[in-house]
Design a protein around this nucleic acid. Structure first.
Lengths: 390, 390
DNA sequence: GTTAGTTAGTAAACACTACTAACGAAGTAA
DNA sequence: TTACTTCGTTAGTAGTGTTTACTAACTAAC
């Protein structure tokens, strides 16, 4: 560790304090950081020079003494780009300011084997047809990044990408079956194409970052992302969990319960994914709200299917919540799938299975903006990597 | 962060490198740390002055150039004290060298309501009889510390304590029913009584530290400690998990499975503790090995009881292992309770419930020295707090 | 209106830490 | 012997935070 590292750490700490507490004077910052006024003044000067912070006026002179000059993070004078590659219909991109607010959007439709674009409403420009191959997917990402860069109206701090699959800490996508990727060094590819800092992580991990940094999640939370499968992102002690093989959060193929279940495509029986997934929930919900066009409203096991999904999810989560002493369980997925009955079922089952102490403060809640959560999380990752803000 | 903090960090990094790699020259250390020879030479001088490191001879002059002076951690010239308060029959203390080797032991028998000392073999000196009250327990701890200090033959680096119950990061035992403690500032009590640095944590967490730092555990492991109840300690990304309420690892009262079970003393049905605990396993094992003195060898459900315990434990651990992508599951408890059948059952069930990728490298194993694991872990905590070695 | 006291921010000098450059010591290779 | 390699130290330098002392700007009170 060299002095310059300590310096960077102090710059990060200063930004972090500003980011979470809002505009402060240099003197407040000094007290908050435990450094001297002189040092903080010097740090703030550096932050102002880099454009990471700005002076935002004077404090109201209600107290004694000289009124202070308020300094804040340059929340709108810098922008970030966030990418969400987890939707199988389209790759989503966004330009965000430092608060995590989306200021522009872009997307690239994707053609896959089982889902064809052009059903009328979402018909886009003329992109080549055919299934999404690995190289084609990389090209689409680069196109999307370029489009986002063109949409930006301020200097770009960095690019964050949330991708499905398993992502190593070296910025390599180890495996992402949906995108037909295997050991793709996506971080370096995008970085060399744009000459900007790039941060890369799993989509559920990105969402967890969003809830932790930009939302109201605490330092110990799990975010469960329900899509075609189930995955989760974990924040433990304020840090993201990576795992021994960078595969933390892969809970879709854990067998849950002691009473059998359906056969999973992975070969086992009763995997969490066979109980909880967007397709499965859609099917259950469609059947439980008898549509006139639907001929067979087999209302027999259908309201139960949503409840059962919630129960199974909670059964799998309960040991995790207890072992890690988590304070938040956050659910995330398409709005039409995360129905109240599901959330209630998760919360009820979770509380029934946990000891009373944690019950008191445990929160089970739903992400407010499921469509933006991954791009916002990717941006949060940029905040962390570039500014040290978390 | 001040320059002195960076300095301490570098001293820690140097010690850490020496600790894990064994004797090295200053030049090797410099290459290993990415610092210059000059800086490392200065750091080593400081470590020698403090007695934390020693020169241990010269390298064999096989290569070209001037032979080097080997430096190592002062493994036997400093000692630590580790305390294990988790045994309900006695408080255990030990003096250890920096390698974690026990060089002396001490203990203080404990009288509790349901377990009376003096069954012949373990009769000690004349300690007052009666149940262990909170203040009496503190006195016993102080006596034990004093005895250990008297047994030490080298300067003491610090005192580590592994206690049952929930321990806050401020060194306060929030609740420890077995010792009748509630909000006891044990760390400060012992520190002011001895004028030495004191580290305090939960007994299962201490054991996890022992496996991580002194054993062959990696950076992502869970250690399950089976005693009168069940608890676990988690190392995630090389750091101990504390949890939002300092209650990480409290998995004893998670309901496990979907098929009912026994009523637990906590009021719920099917808690892990009703399936897995030392008393329960002792009972099952005693029944399965029909003793001539035992009249009723109800061999009906008894071999099953051990297997079932392993299965239930694995059912609870599977989501944790998957979500955190752990590489090691370590079992710990009295030797007569951690029978091979139990371990095999845990491993079999765990692998059956996890996806194949993790299966490949997941290790399920047993702690070799269950009697010393907590005192060694408490010492490992001292290593971490005082030297930054983990 | 004047004076005292408080708070914000800055300038200069100092202390600590790691770095670069240069060198002697102690060995091997020819 | 002579050249070369590697280890470790000495001397001097750059970066970082601190202490001390100062100015600026405002409130409180006479």
């Amino acid at each position: 560790m060299q002095p310059s590292h300590a310096r960077r750490q102090n710059l990060s700490l200063a930004l972090q304090a500003l980011y979470s507490s809002g505009p402060m004077s240099r003197a407040d910052l000094a007290r908050s950081l435990g450094l001297t006024k002189v040092t903080v003044s010097e740090l703030v000067t550096a932050l102002l020079d880099r454009g990471h912070a700005i002076e935002v006026g004077r404090s109201t002179p209600g107290r004694m003494g000289k009124p202070s000059i308020l300094v804040d993070v340059n929340r709108t004078g810098l922008q970030m780009i966030g990418l969400d590659l987890s939707d199988h219909r389209a790759l989503h991109g966004a330009v965000l300011d430092l608060d995590g607010t989306v200021v522009a959007r872009a997307q690239r439709p994707v053609l896959t084997d089982d889902s064809v674009i052009g059903d009328g409403s979402t018909a886009g420009p003329d992109y080549p047809a055919g299934p999404l191959g690995g190289e084609r997917a990389v090209d689409l990402v680069l196109e999307l990044v370029a489009e986002c860069l063109a949409l930006a109206t301020a200097p770009i701090l960095g690019i964050g990408i949330g991708t499905p699959g398993i992502v190593g800490s070296d910025g390599v996508v180890k495996t992402a079956p949906n995108l037909d990727w295997r050991d793709v060094p996506l971080r370096d590819i995008v970085a060399s194409a744009t000459n900007l800092p790039v941060s890369l992580c799993n989509d559920a991990d990105a969402a967890a970052h969003a809830d932790h940094t930009l939302g109201d999640g605490g330092d110990d939370l799990v975010l469960v992302k329900i899509g075609r499968g189930v995955g989760c992102g974990l924040i433990v002690g304020g840090r993201r969990v990576r795992g021994a093989h960078s595969a933390a959060g892969e809970i879709g193929h854990v067998v849950v319960g002691t009473d059998g279940g359906r056969r999973c495509r992975c070969g086992k029986v009763g995997c969490l994914e066979t109980w909880v997934s967007a397709p499965r929930l859609e099917q259950a919900i469609a059947a439980s709200t008898p549509d006139p066009a639907d001929a067979a409203p087999h209302a027999d096991d259908v309201p139960d299917a949503v409840t059962a999904a919630g129960e199974r999810l909670a059964i799998a989560l309960a040991p995790v919540v207890a072992a890690l002493d988590l304070a938040d369980v956050v659910l995330c997925g398409p709005a039409h799938v995360i129905v109240p009955a599901l959330v209630e079922s998760v919360e009820r089952t979770l509380r029934a299975r946990l000891f009373t102490v944690e019950n008191a403060t445990l929160r089970v809640r739903v992400v407010e903006d499921p469509n933006d959560i991954v791009v916002r999380g990717a941006a949060a990752l940029v905040l962390l990597d570039q500014l040290g803000v978390s």
